[in-house]
């Protein structure tokens, strides 16, 4: 029976001491989650990979400043990545929404109903575009709370703002999302299912 994997805090302490294996392990462990966050934020997997690379370069220098009691390693990494997303956004304001990145194979699906599958993909694509088009403050809240399912408290820690601010940004972001999704001109029907007003009495 092998030894249990070291905790993230231990890995980061070792990185601060110059342990390259610890760095490689932290990268392997958190790359998928961090990369998904960056991809949701910028709408492009190749841009997300660049951002994650820069974020992990920053980890090399920042590891000595990590304080285990103050935050969680995942939130710390998300916070660093978020800062790099914002910087990348300033440099590359227009990002493509689709890439055929090698190494990212699409999910294998069995098309029982190709038309329904096409429609589903179209709706998801419309939603992805709507999320990427949100102002960055609202997008961060939507991506962290709804796509990464972080609690308000964890999102607040990642973004470095009060819980109430996260809640209000999420609320405004989602209201904006609903409006945008149903105002799409000449792109087909609203990707939301029809609303049925079920009134309780």
């Amino acid at each position: 029976m092998g030894e249990p994997d070291p905790a993230d805090d231990v890995l980061i302490a070792r990185i601060a001491d110059g342990d390259r294996e610890a760095f490689a392990e932290l990268y392997r462990r958190h790359h998928p989650d961090i990369c998904r966050f960056a991809a949701h934020m910028c709408g492009s997997m190749s841009a997300a990979e660049d951002i994650v690379h820069e974020a992990f370069v920053a980890v090399i220098d920042s590891a000595c400043r990590y304080r285990p009691g103050r935050t969680d390693a995942r939130l710390w990494l998300l916070g660093i990545t978020r800062n790099h997303v914002r910087r990348a956004r300033a440099v590359r304001p227009t990002l493509s929404l689709h890439d055929a990145t090698p190494g990212h194979t699409p999910e294998l699906t069995v098309d029982v109903d190709p038309l329904a599958d096409l429609e589903r993909r179209r709706h998801i694509d419309a939603l992805r575009r709507a999320v990427v088009a949100l102002p960055v403050h609202y997008r961060e809240a939507v991506v962290l709370c709804d796509l990464h399912e972080l609690s308000y408290e964890d999102a607040a820690m990642t973004l470095g703002c009060p819980v109430g601010t996260v809640r209000s940004r999420l609320s405004r972001g989602r209201a904006l999302l609903a409006r945008r999704l149903c105002e799409r001109p000449a792109e087909g029907p609203c990707p939301m299912p029809p609303v049925s007003l079920s009134r309780t009495t």
Partner: peptide
């Protein structure tokens, strides 16, 4: 409508392929 948004966001989260760490990038890091 917000319930529909939640369901759609859930589908979007599930549709994002899981990125695989690229050995070349790790070597550069």
């Amino acid at each position: 409508r917000q319930r529909a948004i939640s369901a759609a966001l859930h589908r979007l989260a599930g549709a994002q392929p899981v990125p695989v760490p690229d050995p070349g990038r790790l070597n550069r890091l």
